[in-house]
Design a protein around this nucleic acid. Structure first.
Lengths: 137, 137
DNA sequence: TAAGCCATTGCAACAAAATTACAAAAAATC
DNA sequence: GATTTTTTGTAATTTTGTTGCAATGGCTTA
């Protein structure tokens, strides 16, 4: 049985930089994006690790894009202290043109599976063209 | 506008081997799985390319797992000649324990987005524990 | 059936993305 | 301020995916 290692949460430059960048943009970002932004300030490996920790701490959630690139988005509903409330049933949208991935918090769906299945996590990703890019045509 | 290159479809050892392995197992498989199975018979690169072609030909579809690993599954409803019928609205399930990813063809959902959005592709992935693994407890 | 076209394959080289180990620096606690 | 534990940087390594090129082989057509 894999025991979850309890780590004390600690502030760090990398983590705050990541969170602030995500608050400034309002799209999900990939490791590469963070690396481009402050690759001179923080090491690649450091960014990987900080992202992992932020996910563990429940501050970020992962979105896996269709091409397999993992992006990180702020948890909003997740601010709630109650971890049992913590879920990511909302839909994610990924625009083919501007490449931005966003959380559609207003659209949350819970899919029911036949009995026998235990559901732990669900991810709905829709790709297409976002309203902004559609308007540019 | 990027014109789709028309390639004539042709039979090949790699492609038939891939399709047969997928029919034998009934789970989706990743490049690594194929490589493990017949890595001595077919080159790594050849497998990559054969998988791409099978997707182009509409015989396989891609499933992106939560960890970013892309898996390939047989298209069933897709046997239909009518390409406009070709869709992958069904739900995918990925088991945390046995690591198998399966298509749940019986559960198909079409999510509607607010006007302004163009939907091109949708992927629903649920991870948890499958009935077989749950029964083993 | 032979000729020719073009998809497929293997190999080698390359590029990109992710992981690990270890030692040094920084935060939090006492 | 000293101790503890997390965080960080560096370097090395592994894994994953891509590209170019020459050779092979499936398919069509003459």
């Amino acid at each position: 049985m894999a025991e979850k290692k309890i780590k004390r949460e600690r502030s760090s430059g990398t983590k705050t930089a990541i969170l602030e960048l995500l608050k400034a943009q309002n799209t999900a970002l990939a490791h590469k994006d963070f690396h481009n932004h402050f690759g001179n300030t923080y090491d690649r490996v450091t960014i990987y690790r900080a992202l992992d920790r932020l996910v563990d701490e429940g501050k970020l959630h992962r979105i896996t894009n269709l091409d397999g690139v993992i992006q990180y988005a702020l948890c909003k509903e997740c601010e709630s202290k109650d971890q049992s409330q913590h879920n990511h049933d909302h839909v994610h949208f990924s625009c083919e043109k501007c490449k931005k991935t966003t959380c559609m918090d207003s659209i949350a769906i819970r899919i029911n599976l036949p009995s026998g299945y235990t559901v732990r996590e669900q991810q709905i990703l829709i790709s297409g063209v976002c309203p902004e890019c559609n308007a540019l045509e």
